[in-house]
């Protein structure tokens, strides 16, 4: 038996040495996260992250819109839509979409990958503090990449003109939504304990 302190109520709980399951505090039933082993968390995050990185490619290459304007069919990818916005002088909106749809997902994938690779090599307290801050930032910007999914849904609901124009979501839209969900799940699966697990160098 080893003893851990419950993060919620502060009570001391005895847990088996080699606990594989998630254990709950006997007093307040809060999960004692120490027993979700760091190694478990790391491989789960890798799996989600690699799936997100793979889907990032079709999400950007395939059209998110299929549209037909006055009988002329055309389609629009994420980057194409941003280029249109910039082309017609709407810099501000273009920048919002560029940040939300291209930069944030990429930053999340690269940032989490960096955290996963660097966890075992962190020595100084400063490096760990910086990594913890990076982790918190990645976790909080997550939902903002959903903007383009909402834009697709609103556009197709607003534009229902029968023969004049029709919009429908392309295959890229579902891929993109999956990228957003997978990166949010990956960020939530990352156990920040791993950043502090190895004793500090002094």
């Amino acid at each position: 038996m080893k003893r851990v302190i419950c993060p919620r109520c502060g009570g001391v709980c005895g847990v088996p040495e080699e606990a594989r399951k998630r254990l709950l505090c006997p007093g307040c039933k809060a999960p004692l996260t120490e027993n979700s082993t760091p190694q478990n968390s790391i491989s789960r995050v890798w799996a989600l992250l690699i799936a997100a990185a793979i889907l990032y490619v079709p999400a950007n290459l395939l059209p998110i819109f299929d549209m037909e304007l006055l009988g002329r069919p055309s389609s629009d990818t994420i980057l194409g839509g941003i280029a249109d916005l910039f082309g017609s002088g709407m810099w501000f909106v273009g920048a919002i979409v560029f940040l939300a749809s291209i930069v944030i997902p990429l930053l999340k994938i690269l940032g989490l990958g960096f955290l996963l690779i660097s966890t075992s090599r962190l020595g100084s307290v400063q490096a760990r503090l910086a990594s913890t801050r990076l982790y918190r930032a990645i976790e909080s910007i997550g939902p903002w990449s959903m903007i383009d999914v909402f834009v697709v849904s609103l556009t197709i609901s607003l534009v229902q003109f029968g023969r004049l124009a029709s919009f429908s979501p392309g295959p890229g839209a579902a891929c993109f939504a999956m990228v957003v969900i997978l990166t949010i799940l990956a960020a939530r699966s990352f156990d920040p304990h791993t950043l502090w697990a190895i004793p500090e160098e002094n």
């Binding site: 017609s88 909106v93 959903m146 609103l154």
Partner: peptide, 22 residues
């Protein structure tokens, strides 16, 4: 984490700006 009304509002703004050309 599944609740994003603020993000939806920004999405509505972007969609409105895009469609205002049309």
């Amino acid at each position: 984490p599944g609740s994003m009304p603020g993000v939806y509002l920004v999405g509505a703004f972007v969609a409105a700006v895009k469609l205002s050309q049309l």
